[in-house]
């Protein structure tokens, strides 16, 4: 884009380059923010209930779990990978959390169990990708199926309930009027930002995604980074599982988390993170997740049928990214 091969004009266009650079950075961070705002305005005009405090808090709650999954997905996609297994891992983790929550007196350990299940599956993904060097798509496609099966196995293919779930407050309680789900998602986003932008590890994640060969030659242990990002994605899927279980008091290995990975990937793409790795930000992902939640919520409020919701959602994702690409291409040319 800004790389005019062999003929950079950088020398005599300092201001322009910085300006273009700033523009590019701005588009990267805020790329989809205008779309988000337009959607909000549109739905608010169309339906008075949309902008109500109650509805906004519902939207945020609905966005929370996808935001957590998409945060993990951002780590993975930044390394030019993909994690298709997060929906299945979420289901297995929710099952694990509920099973342990039924143990008398140790119910709170359900949280730990859910997180551990997620982390465990994430680690397995990471190890296969980093050490056996299998393509991420294939590894996580395999675990998408296998882990789904394990989730069903954990509950003997039934729905597990726990009406006295000790950590139900996570899914239904509030702190200063804000849902715990939303607080957790925000904490995840802020922590992700901190790791990606303020730590050595984060810089290395960008480096590995941007140029794995160069990363290896600068002494970065690429395998360790890959294991970390898939473990993170798994762990956050585990957290998503705990959040789901806490909200529903129940989990079903077959249905829970079906195609959640697609919403998570869509949020990351909408957020402007590049599939080729090395470019992207967690704030973009947050905006992407909000767009998806608002779209769903707004369409429901507007009484659009379920079938059309799918079609509209799909088209908006493609259209928004097309718009973004067009703009970036235009501004990237310096």
């Amino acid at each position: 884009m800004s790389e005019v091969a062999g003929d950079p004009i950088a020398g005599k266009s300092r201001e322009t380059v910085t300006h273009a650079q700033r523009m590019r950075a701005m588009f990267q961070y805020a790329g989809m923010l205008p779309v988000l705002i337009l959607l909000c305005i549109g739905f608010a005009i169309e339906n008075g209930r949309f902008a109500s405090l109650t509805n906004i808090s519902i939207v945020l709650q609905q966005a929370a779990i996808n935001t957590v999954l998409a945060a993990g997905m951002t780590f993975v996609i930044l390394t030019a990978g993909i994690d298709l297994s997060v929906g299945s891992i979420l289901a297995a983790s929710a099952m694990g959390a509920l099973l342990v929550s039924k143990i008398h007196g140790l119910g709170m350990l359900g949280i730990v169990a859910g997180l551990a299940v997620g982390l465990g599956f994430g680690l397995i993904n990471g190890l296969l990708i980093a050490l056996v060097r299998l393509p991420p798509f294939i590894v996580t496609l395999g675990s998408l199926t296998a882990v789904r099966g394990m989730a069903r196995l954990m509950g003997s293919d039934t729905t597990i309930f726990n009406a006295n779930l000790p950590f139900a407050f996570i899914g239904n309680g509030t702190l200063f009027g804000v849902s715990w789900l939303v607080i957790i998602a925000l904490i995840v986003v802020v922590l992700s930002w901190f790791i990606l932008r303020r730590t050595v590890l984060g810089t290395r994640i960008y480096a590995v995604g941007g140029n794995p060969d160069a990363a290896r030659l600068t002494g970065i242990k690429v395998g360790v980074i890959l294991i970390f990002v898939y473990a993170t994605s798994g762990f956050l899927a585990g957290l998503g599982g705990v959040m789901s279980a806490a909200r529903l008091y129940a989990a079903n290995g077959l249905q829970l988390g079906q195609s959640y990975e697609l919403d998570a990937i869509a949020a990351v793409i909408l957020g402007g993170t590049s599939f080729t790795g090395g470019i992207g930000s967690i704030w973009g992902t947050l905006i992407g997740a909000l767009i998806i939640a608002i779209l769903t919520n707004g369409l429901v409020l507007s009484g659009v049928s379920d079938i059309w919701q799918f079609i509209v959602k799909g088209l908006v994702i493609i259209g928004a990214v097309t718009l973004d690409r067009y703009r970036l291409d235009h501004n990237g040319r310096t």
Binding site: Y206, N211, A214
Partner: peptide, 21 residues
């Protein structure tokens, strides 16, 4: 370009990558 630089990273990021640790 292929084996050395991180073209999407800043000058500072490229300079410091060996020593950020």
């Amino acid at each position: 370009k292929v084996l050395g630089l991180f073209l999407d990273m800043s000058i500072s990021g490229n300079l410091n990558i060996n020593v950020i640790g």
